[in-house]
Amino acid sequence: MHRVTLDQILEWNPQITNPDLIYPGQRIRVAPPEMEGEFEPFPGADFFQPSVSSPVIEAMGYRLIDEGCGVYAHGPDSRWSEADQKSYANWQWKLGFRGQDADGIPGRKSWNRLRVPAVYE
């Protein structure tokens, strides 16, 4: 249905330690293959607040892990957190940003370079 392999699902969901055990209600990431132009647009810096919960934040977290910048204890989720901010700051540093430009709050330039896959709900 989503055109992904079991290996991709396991890669995108490090919390799954046994692929034979997936529980009812367990949230797993299933992303369609990335195609040109299928990325989340920058939602604006005000979007990244502790009160915000969105699958876009979770998708961003998995991209940060893919880039070697994630500092999540149990993987990202849909609520903006301190781990998201620290992980994003790592991404900003990786891109060469410093000072206030590497505060962990996404900006348009760093967001566009992260290429967060479009979230299908």
Rank of each mutant, 00 (worst) to 15 (best):
P50Q: 03
F47R: 01
Q92T: 08
D101M: 11
P19D: 11
G68W: 03
M35E: 15
G70V: 04
E121V: 06
D46N: 11
N13F: 01
D66I: 01
N13V: 02
D84I: 08
P41L: 10
R79S: 15
R115K: 15
E38R: 09
S53P: 01
W12M: 05
H2P: 12
V119P: 10
A45D: 08
D101P: 05
V52A: 09
S53W: 00
I9C: 04
H74C: 10
P76R: 02
I57N: 00
P41F: 05
R98H: 09
H74V: 11
W111C: 04
A31W: 02
Q100D: 15
G68N: 04
G61H: 03
R63Y: 02
G70C: 07
G44H: 03
E38Q: 13
Q8G: 00
I65S: 08
W12K: 05
P55N: 14
Y62E: 06
D84G: 10
P106F: 05
P33L: 09
P76E: 08
P50S: 03
Q92C: 10
K109I: 15
V30D: 02
R3I: 03
I57G: 00
P76Y: 05
M35R: 14
F42A: 04
P50G: 04
D101Q: 13
R115Q: 15
E58V: 03
D103C: 02
A118K: 15
G75C: 10
A118W: 05
A59M: 06
L6I: 06
